[in-house]
C-alpha cells in the first residue's frame, strides 16, 4: 500500500542531502526577506528570480512539480493581487505585481523545500527551532494519521463503488458528507486507542527521535548563504 507521499520528488539532488534544519532556516529567512522588498519593480526582482532558478536547478526538481503547486495557489494570489487594483491606490499596479512576485517566489521556494525534504524532517527541524511542543506533537500525529484516514476513506469508497457499480443515482453530496462523518467517527475512536498505545509505550509528552548529527560549520554557512544573498539585494 503506497500513499500520496511515497517519496521525495527530488531524492537524489545535492539539496536533498543537506541538513533539513539548514534548508528550513534558509527557506524561511529568504521568504521573509523577499517579503520586505519595496513594491516598485527593480533589478532586485530579476536577480532574485535568477537566484531562485539556480536553487531550483541545484534541487533538480521537475518544473511540473513546482508549477502544479504555483497553479494551485494562483487563485489566492490573484485574489490578493486584485485588492490593491480595486482599491484605486496610487501605484496599485506595482503593488499587485509585488504581491504576485513575492507570493510566487515563496511558493517556489517552499515547493523546492518540500521536494527535497521529508515532512518528518521538517517537523523535527521545527522542534529544533523552538516551535511550541504542542504544535510539533500535533503536526507529527497529523502527518502520521492523515494517511491512515486517507486509507480508510479509500476503503469506504471502494466498498461503496462495489455496491453501486461506481454509479450514484442521486445524493452525491449527501453520500460524501456521510462518508466524511464515518471517517471522522472512526478517527475519533482511533484517537482513543492511539492515546492508550502512547501511554503503554511510556509517552511523557515528547516524541524523542534519534537525532541526525548536529550542524557542521559548512552546513551552517550554507544555511545563511541564500538569505544573505537576498539580504544583500535588499540593502544595496
Amino acid at each position: 500500500m503506497r500513499s500520496v507521499d511515497a517519496g521525495l520528488a527530488a531524492p537524489r539532488s545535492p539539496l536533498a542531502a543537506a541538513h533539513p534544519t539548514v534548508k528550513l532556516c534558509a527557506a524561511l529567512a529568504t521568504v521573509v526577506l523577499i517579503s520586505t522588498f519595496p513594491p516598485a519593480p527593480s533589478w532586485r526582482q530579476g536577480v532574485t528570480v535568477a537566484i531562485l532558478l539556480a536553487v531550483w536547478g541545484l534541487a533538480r526538481v521537475s518544473p511540473g512539480y513546482v508549477l502544479r503547486r504555483v497553479a494551485a495557489a494562483a487563485p489566492f494570489i490573484a485574489l490578493a493581487a486584485c485588492l490593491p487594483l480595486v482599491s484605486g491606490l496610487p501605484g496599485a499596479g506595482a503593488l499587485a505585481g509585488a504581491v504576485v512576485f513575492k507570493a510566487t517566489s515563496a511558493i517556489v521556494l517552499l515547493s523546492i523545500l518540500a521536494a527535497t525534504t521529508p515532512v518528518e524532517d521538517i517537523l523535527q527541524s521545527l522542534c529544533r527551532l523552538g516551535v511550541p511542543r504542542a504544535f510539533a506533537l500535533t503536526a507529527v500525529l497529523m502527518n502520521r494519521y492523515l494517511f491512515v484516514l486517507l486509507d480508510e476513506w479509500r476503503g469506504i469508497s471502494r466498498a461503496r463503488d462495489c455496491r453501486t457499480g461506481g454509479q450514484l443515482a442521486s445524493g452525491r453530496c449527501r453520500m460524501w458528507a456521510n462518508q466524511a462523518a464515518m471517517v471522522f467517527v472512526r478517527g475519533w475512536d482511533r484517537s482513543a486507542r492511539v492515546a492508550q498505545a502512547l501511554l503503554t509505550r511510556g509517552f511523557r509528552g515528547e516524541f524523542p527521535r534519534l537525532q541526525r548529527p548536529d550542524l557542521g560549520v559548512a552546513e551552517a554557512a550554507l544555511a545563511v548563504a541564500l538569505p544573505l544573498a537576498v539580504l544583500l539585494l535588499r540593502v544595496v
Binding site: 498505545a197 515528547e206 516524541f207 534519534l210
Partner: peptide, 18 residues
C-alpha cells in the same frame, strides 16, 4: 494504533528513548 512515529526506525526507538 501503535505506530505513530514518522519512520519505522523512529517508532522502534520511541519506547527506549522514552
Amino acid at each position: 494504533d501503535q505506530i505513530f512515529m514518522p519512520t519505522v526506525e523512529d517508532d522502534v526507538a520511541f519506547g527506549p528513548l522514552n
